[in-house]
């Protein structure tokens, strides 16, 4: 039996304010393996973003544990990187400098860092924009910088928190296709992708596995392995069935 890259075991989370305690995550446990593209979907406000922050080591859970290659995640580990919904680019750094931020703890030479970052920007389709500042870039281009920054450190696990939801529909569609292509064709070091999303079409288009979360306090209500071939055909019967299954789950979770 293959060993999982990532294990979540009884992860719990609550926020306390004064004497009041709001339970956000009741109990989430799953294992994720090599070559999986896992999407986590759930109604809005169900703690998806908190969950991905716990996985990335940015947020500490109030119970249970997250294991990455067998070791407990207590702070952001090397080998994992995160793509943010709002890009989280530093406005005072150029695209290239933003990407280089991800290499700040490596002891490579400056030239080799720069070379790798430029190559990565080229890979995500930003060849001519290395010296541009974020505010000179469109939303789609900003997220390309975000993706380049996440990939340049050669991570094993790529975490994405609603990476396409700040973009307009057409840009999102295009960037999603390109990103999926990049990740699936093994051009990168990434072995496992975990993406948080609220869009049914989006998760069906790219996922090998879809984890459905309940409303707050959240737990997993379904874990679906998707066996359709890529690129996925929106008009196929399987697509239609999966979409209505997800829709039904989300509706019952929301109400």
């Amino acid at each position: 039996m293959m060993k999982p890259i990532l294990e979540l075991d009884n992860v719990r989370l609550y926020f306390s304010k004064g004497r009041f305690r709001t339970e956000i995550i009741k109990d989430v446990s799953f294992e994720a393996y090599k070559d999986e593209f896992v999407s986590i979907i759930g109604p809005s406000g169900c703690g998806k973003s908190s969950l991905i922050r716990i996985i990335s080591g940015l947020l500490q859970s109030n119970g249970g544990e997250v294991l990455y290659n067998g070791a407990e995640v207590l702070s952001p580990p090397r080998g994992m990187s995160l793509v943010f919904q709002d890009f989280a680019l530093l406005p005072w750094l150029t695209a290239l400098e933003n990407v280089k931020l991800a290499l700040s703890d490596s002891n490579e030479s400056e030239e080799s860092k720069e070379r790798r970052c430029k190559k990565m920007l080229q890979e995500v389709g930003l060849k001519g924009s290395a010296e541009a500042y974020p505010k000179e870039l469109s939303g789609g281009m900003k997220q390309r910088v975000g993706i380049a920054r996440a990939l340049v450190s050669n991570p094993e696990v790529l975490l994405m928190d609603e990476p396409f939801s700040s973009l307009d529909a057409i840009t999102a569609d295009q960037l999603r296709k390109e990103t999926h292509h990049l990740l699936k064709n093994k051009k990168t070091s990434v072995k496992l992708v975990i993406m948080v999303s609220h869009s049914i079409e989006e998760v069906i288009e790219v996922s090998d596995r879809i984890i459905v979360l309940d409303r707050v306090p959240t737990s997993i209500i379904d874990d679906i392995y998707v066996k359709m071939k890529y690129p996925r055909d929106m008009r196929s019967k399987q697509y239609f069935e999966l979409a209505s299954r997800l829709r039904k789950l989300l509706h019952s979770a929301q109400s």
Binding site: P76, S104, D105
Partner: peptide
């Protein structure tokens, strides 16, 4: 997210 990005990139 700005500060989270800094942390997840493990800046010294």
């Amino acid at each position: 997210s700005i500060f989270e990005a800094a942390r997840s990139n493990r800046l010294g």
